[in-house]
Design a protein around this nucleic acid. Structure first.
Length: 264
DNA sequence: AGTACCACCTGACGGC
DNA sequence: TGCCGTCAGGTGGTAC
């Protein structure tokens, strides 16, 4: 699930729920998701503190504590946040749960344990340690053109390279390429100037629209490829067949009729 | 520099 | 029904 739009939705969710509340206790249900800190230490550092702000870069989210330190979240493929007072039923995938003095809890939920949480003093150093490039939504056309300039491989791996541009994953890279009419295997160097511009504009459009629709696939336009990710499905634009191919082991969906390798 | 593959995890689904 | 392989939107490390 979590690419840039999803993480942005989580960030706004935390802003709307768990800010400015004093932490009473922290339950680390699975220390395996922690990085760089033990469960005991995390607990000690959070108790009595509160979350005062949030920031996001790509798929990473940080929550600023009232002592200047940062709680870090990465959601992996199945992570999300949930704020609640009374647990409804079994909560077997909660990995870390913070409890506040008001009786509410914020759970870091992660079915597959591919997500990560940590605590750092320096946000910039954290981003650097993960080799994160600029956030996809912080770029202007000139930045984007500069990043593509001199890039060697195919365009899809470039869009997904977090050290180049942070935030775009498998799903949204396919969507951006589809809307721009560019084949995912097109070498970046072969993209016409006009195609690079289209990619930039579609990137912004897709990410912003997805955030607006809460990154909920059910609310995303039926004209998008996203809602037709199935081999043999009808392309919403031309009625041709959507195909699934593999690019470095990841499923890639495209409409071969709409997406040309020449980059047009 | 860029790509492919594996590992890390759990669960859903289709075929037999 | 049970078993098996495959697939799923994440990253990090290694090998080429």
């Amino acid at each position: 699930m979590p690419e840039l739009p999803d993480v942005e939705v989580f960030r706004r969710y935390l802003n709307a729920t768990a800010l400015h509340k004093t932490v009473k206790d922290v339950a680390v249900k699975d220390a395996g998701v922690l990085r760089g800190i033990s469960g005991k230490k995390l607990k000690g550092r959070l108790n009595g503190r509160s979350l005062e702000s949030t920031k996001r870069r790509g798929k990473h989210m940080l929550a600023g504590l009232d002592n200047g330190h940062w709680l870090t979240f990465h959601f992996g493929m199945t992570g999300y946040l949930e704020y609640f007072k009374v647990p409804s039923g079994e909560r077997e995938h909660d990995r870390v749960v913070m409890e506040f003095r008001n009786g509410y809890r914020l759970a870091f939920v992660n079915r597959r344990k591919l997500g990560r949480m940590g605590l750092v003093e320096d946000a910039a150093r954290f981003f650097a340690a993960h080799s994160l490039g600029p956030d996809a939504l912080d770029l202007d056309l000139g930045n984007f053109e500069d990043l593509m300039e001199g890039r060697r491989g195919s365009v899809k791996p470039a869009l997904m390279d977090q050290s180049l541009i942070a935030g775009i994953g498998n799903i949204y890279s396919d969507e951006i390429l589809y809307q721009a009419g560019v084949h995912p295997k097109t070498p970046v160097g072969k993209l016409k100037e006009e195609a690079v511009r289209r990619l930039f504009h579609r990137m912004n459009h897709v990410l912003k629209m997805a955030i607006k629709r809460k990154a909920d696939p059910d609310q995303l336009p039926q004209t998008w490829l996203l809602t037709h990710r199935q081999d043999g499905a009808a392309c919403p634009r031309c009625g041709g067949k959507v195909r699934r191919i593999k690019i470095s082991g990841r499923s890639t969906y495209l409409c071969p009729a709409c997406q040309s390798k020449s980059g047009r």
